[in-house]
Nucleic acid binder design. Structure first.
Length: 197
DNA sequence: CTTTGGATCGTCT
DNA sequence: GACGATCCAAAGG
């Protein structure tokens, strides 16, 4: 018998992104039949964070981050991939948590079909672009409300698995500034991380 | 196993 | 016109 999935409420997301990020570890991202346990995230701290898309103010692309917490900010990266963030903090702070890697736990057939280049299970969702591709998340989902989702739309659940204590902490990946901040959080030892350690 | 370079295009300078 | 919050294939140890 498994604990029923309980949808995260608005207040969960209203805190600082650096607090929300580790709490999202081991939560379950649901999209249709596909479910995946979040094992790696990064916090972005809005206007105070030079690595954040929101650092230079609001634009058409990052508008979702400036809205209320609990929505999904999805952007197109390197002309190739989609990446998904959860908007955090009080409305207007433009802070967010990037979803970087997850362990697929349901709907595996669909995930494999969406990730034809993956060879092993641990390659399915181990990276922000891979995660979106494998779960079928793209630009159509920018602005989606995770707290009051559309039927078949993405949302986040607690299945009773607590976050790791303590979580792994490292610098964020792929950025050229603020490299000294330890704002990447991981489930230590998970084989589904985008990178070990 | 690690390293390297190409792909590809929306966004902002 | 330059540059990414990346991924992947190819080549080398």
């Amino acid at each position: 018998m498994s604990t029923p999935l309980r949808r995260l409420e608005r207040d969960f997301y209203r805190a600082d992104s650096r607090e929300v990020a580790p709490r999202l570890l081991n939560k379950v991202l649901v999209h249709g039949n596909r479910r995946a346990r979040i094992v790696e995230v990064e916090a972005y701290a809005g206007g105070e964070d030079p690595a954040s898309h929101a650092y230079r103010g609001r634009t058409a692309r990052n508008a979702t981050m400036f809205g209320p917490p609990g929505h999904l900010y999805v952007y197109f990266s390197y002309g190739v991939h989609w990446c998904a963030n959860v908007v955090c903090g009080p409305e207007g702070t433009a802070s967010a948590v990037l979803l970087r890697a997850a362990e697929p736990v349901a709907g595996l057939d669909e995930v494999w079909a969406a990730r034809p280049k993956a060879r092993r299970e641990r390659d399915l969702l181990s990276g922000p672009g891979r995660l979106c591709q494998g779960l079928g998340i793209d630009g159509r989902h920018d602005g989606a409300d995770l707290v009051d989702p559309l039927v078949g739309g993405p949302w986040v659940a607690d299945d009773g698995t607590p976050p790791p204590c303590p979580p792994g902490r490292t610098p964020r990946i792929g950025i050229s500034v603020a490299r000294d901040e330890l704002w990447r959080f991981t489930v230590p030892g998970s084989p589904h991380l985008s990178r070990p350690r």
